[in-house]
């Protein structure tokens, strides 16, 4: 009897203790949930705030120019006629050049490092790539302006102009005079800047390929090229696209380095060697001394357009990833 009573009281005691502990856990859980939730919601609030600020700030420009803002080539602070076309064109073209050169080279480096390179060299090159990613963009700009552009002007641009002088279309694309700086130079500098991003991501995803897959492929007599093409790249394409998109994101928004070497002219020329401008370079250049509400508003409208371009690019990347995943799932 006595024992039962003691057991009973012990049980009650345990029950209370357990409930207390459970409550404490629940409160802890709730706090944790609230904190993380707040953090996540903050992002949404900031994003919404940025969009609202951009839309509100750019309203005068939209009211004044309407859709014509996208199609007008004029950028005239004296008569207050502003159009975004040259800046949009420059942003897309420089990013395209950067991707055209940056992606194949990055993939080449990543393949060499993961598959072909001797172990000791692998570390050295790997660290060099990471250092390249750590250089502030203004350094690329200064290097581009002082070292690369003068060299490019004297040694490469005349060569390009002469080589393509008699080939239709290409002679328009590479028409002089050689300024040294311009859209092509900006694209090349951007290519160097996106290299480390794409390389380090693709390198990491290449490392995730199970060795057994590659060994099996080598076992049936595949060459290195075939292993890369048939096994490694299909296995990692989602990661590769992710890396490329990250690089593209950087190229689209890069400001300082581009401002130094693009020539900052609101014009659209047939030649890729002509000076041009990008959205972010225009804003960085002109915001401080923009006099008049329409001028400021037009610059904010440019910012909104860049925001939209980035959004479309990201959405497109998502869509591509989803399609690939669905295809692979079959």
């Amino acid at each position: 009897m006595m024992d039962a009573a003691v057991a009973e009281s012990n049980f009650v005691h345990d029950e209370a203790k357990r409930a207390k502990t459970l409550r404490r856990f629940r409160i802890g859980d709730l706090t944790f949930k609230t904190i993380t939730q707040t953090a996540a919601i903050t992002v949404l609030v900031i994003l919404a705030g940025v969009i609202v600020a951009l839309v509100h700030g750019s309203l005068p420009a939209w009211r004044a120019y309407g859709f014509g803002f996208f199609t007008s080539e004029s950028w005239n602070p004296v008569t207050e006629k502003f159009g975004a076309l040259p800046a949009i064109y420059g942003t897309l073209l420089t990013s395209f050049i950067a991707m055209l050169i940056g992606v194949p080279v990055s993939l080449g480096i990543a393949i060499f490092l993961t598959e072909i390179c001797p172990q000791r060299l692998r570390r050295t090159i790997g660290i060099a790539i990471e250092l390249l990613a750590g250089i502030p963009s203004i350094i690329y700009g200064i290097w581009g302006l002082f070292i690369f552009a003068p060299w490019f002007q004297v040694h490469v641009q005349p060569l390009l102009i002469d080589t393509f002088a008699n080939i239709p279309i290409l002679n328009q694309l590479f028409a002089g005079p050689p300024y040294g700086i311009g859209l092509l130079t900006a694209g090349l500098i951007l290519a160097i800047m996106v290299l480390p991003f794409i390389t380090s991501i693709t390198r990491e995803v290449f490392d995730t390929v199970p060795p057994v897959l590659k060994e099996a492929a080598y076992g049936i007599g595949c060459t290195r090229w075939e292993v890369m093409k048939r096994v490694v790249i299909p296995y990692t394409r989602v990661g590769i696209i992710g890396g490329v998109m990250l690089g593209l994101g950087r190229a689209l928004g890069e400001t300082m380095a581009v401002t130094f070497v693009i020539g900052n002219a609101h014009r659209i020329a047939a030649s890729v060697m002509a000076p041009g401008t990008t959205i972010s370079a225009s804003i960085a250049n002109e915001f401080t001394e923009a006099v008049g509400d329409l001028y400021t508003s037009s610059l904010i409208a440019l910012g909104l357009i860049l925001f939209l371009i980035t959004f479309v690019v990201l959405a497109f990347a998502r869509l591509m990833l989803m399609r690939i995943e669905r295809k692979a799932g079959k």
């Binding site: 950028w75 602070p77 004296v78 008569t79 311009g182 401002t259 900052n264 000076p275 250049n285 002109e286």
Partner: peptide
């Protein structure tokens, strides 16, 4: 072209 703190330049490259 006109006179302003920034103008629409007919030719040339812009530097900051």
């Amino acid at each position: 072209v006109g006179a302003e703190t920034a103008v629409e330049w007919p030719v040339g490259i812009g530097a900051k």
